[in-house]
């Protein structure tokens, strides 16, 4: 099935609102609603439904535009399982001045007879921030992966200066086994961070965080399973000063709120 989808988020006052949302089967976009959503300055949209189970013949394209100063969190609700046959997913993200986007999908599992292609293109203003996560799992437990080929390109600023351009492949046994490529690991996790300050490179047993040449950092982790790889990836991301700063700010904000709450209760006690 061929689907073309569109999502536009704009800043209104101190909130980000979904301005335009068009999706068609097999892709569904579901904005988070309710009280929690109205308190959050960022809009959250879930990728759900059959979009997360690409089948042979599925050809899905989603264009996302985050307007000036707007904030969007785009998440998946369940692992995407690429099934038998040729399928493709194209994501085009455009971020205006001061916009932020966190793309945090669940892992993509490339099953034995899949032939799945993805393209993730992000163009962002030099003041915009983006965080792009991708977790690839080569086959279900005990299964050899099918074919996967995914390209990520991130470009920034007026001249569309490329900061990252990478194609990852699964399904070629020689590459999978090579100690230069996946070293026999089944899972690859990456996270692109153009999110404030980029510090020194950092590294652990199965992960690394490295500053990119022009702007941003790339966190990479490999592992035998999704859980350990995600944990390693989280360690790499935690080493990023820009991200750490903004997450500690968020923590402080939430702490501040609860401290106030605590104070008000204790004041009332006597």
């Amino acid at each position: 099935m061929r689907a073309r989808a569109l999502l536009t988020v704009e800043r209104v006052g101190d909130r980000s609102v979904v301005r335009e949302l068009r999706s068609q089967s097999p892709l569904s976009l579901v904005p988070r609603r309710g009280t929690a959503a109205t308190l959050d300055p960022a809009a959250t949209v879930h990728l759900v439904g059959s979009a997360t189970t690409p089948l042979g013949g599925d050809d899905v394209e989603l264009a996302v535009h985050v307007g000036p100063a707007a904030k969007l969190v785009l998440t998946g609700v369940a692992a995407a399982v690429a099934l038998a046959g040729t399928s493709s997913l194209t994501l085009r993200f455009t971020l205006d001045e001061g916009a932020t986007l966190q793309y945090l999908p669940e892992p993509t599992v490339v099953t034995a007879r899949a032939d799945h292609h993805t393209l993730l293109r992000t163009e962002l203003h030099e003041t915009a921030r983006v965080r792009l996560r991708e977790i690839l799992v080569g086959g279900r437990a005990g299964e050899q992966p099918g074919r996967y080929r995914g390209t990520t390109r991130v470009a920034t600023g007026l001249g569309s200066c490329p900061v990252l351009h990478q194609t990852q492949e699964f399904g070629d046994p020689a590459l999978q086994a090579s100690s230069a490529v996946l070293a026999g690991n089944r899972v690859l996790g990456t996270e692109v961070l153009l999110w404030g300050a980029d510090g020194e490179a950092a590294t652990g047993e199965s992960w690394a965080l490295t500053p990119l040449a022009r702007r941003g950092s790339l966190a990479t982790a490999v592992g035998p399973d999704a859980v350990s790889t995600q944990r390693a990836l989280a360690q790499a991301v935690a080493a990023h000063p820009g991200w750490a700063e903004s997450s500690s700010e968020r923590t402080l904000r939430s702490l501040g709120m609860s401290e106030n709450a605590v104070r008000s209760t204790t004041e009332e006690t006597p």
Binding site: T167, Q168, E169, L182, T203, A208, V222
Partner: peptide
């Protein structure tokens, strides 16, 4: 633009 994740990890380490 083929990536080599482990090569990257090795170089950084």
């Amino acid at each position: 633009a083929p990536g080599a994740p482990v090569l990257d990890l090795l170089a950084q380490a």
